[in-house]
Amino acid sequence: MLSVEGLRHTFGEGGGQVVALDGVSFTLMPGQALAIFGPNGAGKTTLLKVLAGLIRPQAGSVQVTGGRRAIGWIGHQSHLYEHLTVRENLLFWASLYGVPAARRGPRAAEVLGRLGMRDRADRPVWSLSRGLAQRAAIAKALIHDPSVLLLDEPFTGLDLAAAAELRALLGELRGGGGGAAGRVVVLATHNVDEGVELATDVAFQRHGRFVHFAPRGGREPAGIAEAYRRAVTDG
């Protein structure tokens, strides 16, 4: 479970203060995927950083069942060391996340298999193509089997096929519905078309505030995109 209450955070001081988060509250249960749409500078990345514990908010609280150990983060950057192999990277991060030594090898193999990278496991990261590197980054984020996935513009730089593949994977990881417990997914993007299929809940963020926050229900992507356009352009 991921629960936040009354988050507020600003940057700068005096008259130059920028409000990045303003009274954001929500609770997500496993199996729920929240897609946050907002223009650049709306505070989406700040929100994710607060959820991940990178920024301590000035007000409000964050509760994640399982703490830092439960969080998987996929951002603009892969966090991989270019001169280590994919497997070495995975083992390193597994160790930091407290995966027991005996479980690290099998777990890495499992994640690599799931992402179709088993035959590239022993290649250094610098030798991978962009798409493969992105997959390796996802493998890194999943290595400790996180129950909360935080994604910051994960589709940036992916071609259509790769983006579709990632969406399918994320849908599978979210799970839920079919009896399985599933995971909490929070996805931030400025492009409605990219994330909406996956979402169970939709929020529009603007000037640090959720101007719209509701279950997706049966709404079509086109309808949500239209609502988003109106929410972002009016007043």
């Binding site: 700068g12 001081e13 005096g14 008259g15 130059g16 203060q17």
Partner: peptide, 11 residues
């Protein structure tokens, strides 16, 4: 200085 900088970026 802080007050001025604040106003400038604020505008």
């Amino acid at each position: 200085r802080d007050a001025q900088r604040g106003e400038r970026t604020g505008r």
